[in-house]
Amino acid sequence: MSDHPSPRAAELGVPAGYYDYPVVKRPVWTWEVPAYFWLGGLAGGAFLVSSAAELFGTDEDRLVARDGFVVAAAAALPCAPLLIKDLGNPQRFHHMLRIFKPLSPMNLGAWTLAAFTPVTLARAAAEAGRAGLLPGPLAAVARLLPRPLMNAAGSVLGAVLAGYSGVLLGATNIPLWAKSKLLGGVFMASAASSGVAAVMMAAARRRAPEKTLHKLSRLGTLATLGELAVLGAFLKQSGRAADPLVKNAFSVPFWAGAVGLGSLVPLVLEQVAGRRTGKFTRSLLTVSAVCSIAGSFCLRWTIFEAGKESAGDQAASFGLSRRTQA
């Protein structure tokens, strides 16, 4: 049938499309979903950084890693409640785990979160035990936990948790989310930069050695640069599907929040802090980390909400489904 010309609408010179009704349905999700993606990414990123610090770092770095695991656990803890709150029937949240169906990113994510959360909690408990924050018997149990194994498992699960959310949104028919295949990469990079920032914030407040702080700062700069690169490619590939994000409804929170606050400000602050030492550096890096973390939320939230807007863009939907550019 493909070769058959169906020229009626074209002959009459009227545009295709049924009035201005959208082709696809507007996603029903609310703020809990981007909040969960943000915290899940942050937790995964922080866990990964902490594991790297413990495995490859100096003794000083390892002290920082301890805080990082606690940060990761704290970020992971609200994820499941957020995910459950967004369900249409929250009392049936466990239906997510009645089957294992990796074909569905949502199912894969639910299993990942179900595995990652106890790992981070156990890993944080191990640190708490080591720091003498647990009562005797619990501390004894916590000491028995296999830390390297938990690090390996948590890093893999954390990375999946950080990246699957972008794939989940991408594996839909929403123009902004689906047009480019890079959204998973964007979210992964954002998880990395915010994860580093979270560890750095804890380290700066806990008087970590400056050497370690500078390592984190450099890693943060690299992660942010990577994030900007992937984001730029994502926007370029998305074309007009990205209009609600870069031009219309959500352009201000996107450019000012996600890009400005979340990437440019930390880049500048980290550059300034890199040449200095002392209390001022710690304050600069704390501010930088807060900006990066807030920007990371802005990025998830604006892409999420702008995606919902793009669902109403009939022409963008047609563009997504056309084999040839009309």
């Binding site: 959208p22 082709v23 249409g88 997510m96």
Partner: peptide, 15 residues
């Protein structure tokens, strides 16, 4: 069975 996760909604290419 459905718990209202809403993922089928944006998945459908026909709305």
């Amino acid at each position: 069975i459905c718990n209202g996760c809403g993922y089928c909604v944006p998945a459908c290419p026909f709305g």
